[in-house]
Design a binder for these strands. Sequence first.
DNA 1: TTCTGTGCAAATCTTTTGCATGGCA
DNA 2: TGCCATGCAAAAGATTTGCACAGAA
Lengths: 131, 131
Amino acid sequence: MKNLKSLLEESNLKITPQRLAILKELDNKGHASIEEIYETIKEMFPSISLATIYKNINSLKDEGIISEICLHQKPKYELQKEPHAHFICQKCGYVEDVPFSEIMDKNIEKKYPNSQKELYIYGICAKCKEK
Amino acid sequence: MKNLKSLLEESNLKITPQRLAILKELDNKGHASIEEIYETIKEMFPSISLATIYKNINSLKDEGIISEICLHQKPKYELQKEPHAHFICQKCGYVEDVPFSEIMDKNIEKKYPNSQKELYIYGICAKCKEK
DNA sequence: TTCTGTGCAAATCTTTTGCATGGCA
DNA sequence: TGCCATGCAAAAGATTTGCACAGAA
């Protein structure tokens, strides 16, 4: 498992159990919403507050430790990784990372140098197609 | 100018001054948020309600007359057009449509057939670069 | 010990809903 | 005339803020 603690050590944020729990949740699930993070962490930290989740998500975002994506207008969060696209299943909601190299035209970097790209692909995943 | 009225005539929605005003605003600006639409239309219809904007935006979206995009987590709306990408200037907020044909890898359709794509490119526009 | 983080409650948006009235077809 | 649309106010949701206390360094 990735060393989540070191992500905080290298930042301006202190290491707290709540922050580690958020990072662990994102590492496990890959992508999660505020509400999903809250519900999961509440099982281990029954006293945790929604406000704490919000504050930490914002701090972690500001430090560049996590990043925010927008799936059908709903914000979700993931650990910061190489730039990549997202495939979203319209039936089950499954989200998959897709490397930009596999799908992005090579010319786009010439046309829009130093730009930050977000690509969402909405379709039906393999599992749902079987059914 | 495009015949905005006919968009409503061909739908299940009745023609009202408020709806025409919303479509006209989107046709003028290209892209606008609920708040922007509200502020502009209020100048002509001081009695218009925010709730009316919300309700109509939802109806127009359901009818496929307009579509919703997500710019830095803020929802904006545009008249329904050919699928295209969006370039967003990070300095001035300017939004430009970019045809998919210019930038999307041709293989993406093979890999994800019948999928709906959303591509956002965040950068600095020509005008802001000059400064 | 100092200063940041947490948790609670309240405040602030944002969006939706219910209902009486108004207006399009 | 019969519905659908509008506008208002209230409700519901989502996110932020203030403050006192707790906990990391």
